[in-house]
């Protein structure tokens, strides 16, 4: 890690940790008034996070898009950026950070435990199609993370509603009142659709890249296979919703489970790196 990168990286992680703590407080003590303030904190975190990306860019001379650490760094950036983007467009979606901030911390934490050292860009990664591939991978990752967040909020809301049903007569304010379950349900699908389309572009661009790098569009290497698996998984989710009427609780759990396949895919890229650097058997 470059000097300023390390400072910014750890600082952003601390800021995210503080805001995650704030969210836990908001949830446990049912004080949702602090949520807007936490969003400002996350905004500051993203600025510092951007600083880490910039410092790494200048230290290496290329975008961070190859190792586990870089995937965590950039994937996390996209998740937080999309969280802030939707919160900016619609205030009621601020609560999505409850799920996306801890997810970001996990993937950044995992990444930094792996290989944060600086490296020049491997020849295998200098490709227009790879740039398209990676960019759309991040976009779809961000969107799938939002779908997961909408699912988490849906479940929390549902639980609160159940508790309310059993509670004594005194009125309990509705959880995340300005987000109706129907809206959350739609939002899950909307983000899923955005993620699914960008994921499809990512797979197509990746296979065109593979043709130029390995001489074949598809070689069933682990990363290709896994990206197909997670795309099929989201395809199955769309089917379950459109043709089998899955909604609400079941669909929320599906969005949470499906994100796991994407996270595995994301970090699987390191395996791709190993085998693609292997092509140039010198390093």
């Amino acid at each position: 890690m470059a000097y300023y990168e390390a400072i910014c990286f750890w600082l952003s992680l601390v800021i995210y940790a503080l805001s995650a703590g704030g969210y836990i407080y908001a949830l446990v003590f049912r004080n949702e008034k602090v949520v807007p303030k936490l969003l400002v904190l996350i905004g500051i975190g993203l600025l510092v996070h951007t600083g880490a990306v910039a410092a790494r860019y200048f230290a290496q001379g290329h975008f961070p898009w190859s190792t586990d650490y870089e995937n965590g760094l950039m994937g996390g950036w996209f998740i937080i950026a999309s969280t802030l983007f939707v919160a900016w467009r619609q205030k009621s979606l601020r609560v999505f950070a409850v799920a996306t901030v801890p997810t970001t911390m996990l993937i950044m934490g995992y990444g930094v435990m792996r290989n944060p050292s600086l490296a020049p860009m491997a020849a295998t990664l200098k490709s227009f199609w790879l740039a398209i591939h990676v960019f759309f991978a991040w976009l779809s990752f961000g969107a799938y993370a939002l779908a997961m967040a909408a699912g988490v909020i849906y479940l929390l809301k549902e639980r609160a509603a159940k508790e309310r049903g059993q509670a004594p007569a005194e009125p309990v304010p509705d959880r995340f009142a300005d987000l109706s379950p129907e809206r959350l349900d739609d939002l899950m699908f909307k983000y899923l659709v955005f993620g699914f389309i960008t994921n499809a572009i990512m797979i197509a661009a990746g296979s065109i890249w593979a043709k130029d790098l390995w001489g074949a569009y598809w070689s069933w290497d682990p990363v290709e296979t896994w990206s197909l698996i997670s795309w099929l998984m989201y395809g199955a989710a769309i089917h379950l919703r459109v043709t089998m009427g899955w909604r609400g609780t079941r669909f929320s759990w599906l969005m949470i489970a499906a994100l796991l396949t994407v996270i595995i895919n994301f970090f699987g890229v390191s395996i791709l790196m190993k085998s693609s650097v292997h092509v140039f058997k010198m390093s």
């Binding site: 490296a119 020049p120 860009m121 491997a122 020849a123 295998t124 200098k126 650097v277 140039f280 010198m282 390093s283």
Partner: peptide, 12 residues
């Protein structure tokens, strides 16, 4: 003409 920098193949 191979190009290697810091042990990483950067091009050929």
């Amino acid at each position: 003409r191979p190009e290697v920098s810091q042990g990483v193949a950067t091009g050929i």
